[in-house]
């Protein structure tokens, strides 16, 4: 039995790093979007909601293709990259973060939006009569009440980013330590018949997925009980 390649764990750390950063960004960007979607009366808000949800339906190859073109020297990504002397945002860790944020956005926005919507007007009106500013009401009333939604969004966003494959394959360039994430590493091992390595990583992913879904279900049950 030969020893494992020393770089087998690198994609694991890189994937966790990518998923953590993506989740944090999504919570920051997704919360105002979810709030607006839950509270706004604008007639076109469902249009925005649809755009946010589109990655659920689109094959990753569609997003990957557009991202590859947009990130290249002829697209806005190239213009951005020229600020630091680059030509493209593809093949960078930042490029992957950007792709992941778009790809995983519906998984974060949707649960938070639902949680905000479930609060209803009443608690916020009460807060207003107690002379809380809208911002204060948001932080002290809405956010704590919507905590299960935030939790679900964060877990799903994290998990979905870990499971991302198609987009990374198309815009990543398979660079060890920068864009070679877990799913791509597994693909590589399978392609080159290194099944033991593929098994270790793939098995780990299966356990991870099991734990995520189990955690979600348990959390959901517990919050439901507390709510009652």
């Amino acid at each position: 039995m030969t020893s494992l390649p020393p770089d087998i764990w690198q994609p694991v750390w890189l994937t966790i790093e990518l998923a953590v950063i993506t989740t944090v960004i999504l919570l920051i960007v997704g919360t105002p979007i979810a709030w607006w979607l839950a509270r706004s009366k604008a007639w076109w808000k469902e249009g925005v909601a649809t755009v946010v949800a589109m990655p659920l339906v689109l094959p990753p190859t569609v997003l990957g293709f557009y991202l590859l073109v947009l990130m290249g020297p002829d697209g806005p990504g190239g213009a951005l990259a020229s600020l630091w002397g680059g030509r493209t945002v593809a093949f960078t860790f930042g490029g992957l973060v950007f792709g992941s944020v778009i790809y995983s956005m519906p998984f974060v926005v949707q649960p938070i939006r639902n949680a905000f919507a479930a609060i209803g007007d009443r608690p916020l009106e009460v807060a207003a009569t107690l002379r809380a500013s809208p911002l204060k009401a948001f932080w002290t009333v809405a956010v704590p009440l919507a905590r299960p939604g935030f939790l679900a969004g964060a877990v799903l966003g994290f998990a979905h980013t870990v499971g991302e494959f198609g987009i990374v394959l198309m815009i990543g360039g398979n660079i060890p330590g920068r864009t070679k994430v877990l799913s791509v590493a597994i693909y590589d091992y399978v392609e080159t018949s290194q099944w033991r390595e593929a098994n270790i990583l793939a098995g780990g992913m299966a356990v991870f997925a099991f734990l995520v879904i189990l955690t979600m279900t348990v959390l959901e049950k517990r919050t439901a009980r507390i709510a009652r």
Binding site: M71, T88, G173, Y187
Partner: peptide, 15 residues
């Protein structure tokens, strides 16, 4: 992942 993609990276100007 394969030679077509290597070509595509150059074709789109990313490499």
């Amino acid at each position: 992942a394969n030679i077509t993609q290597a070509y595509q990276f150059v074709q789109t100007g990313n490499a």
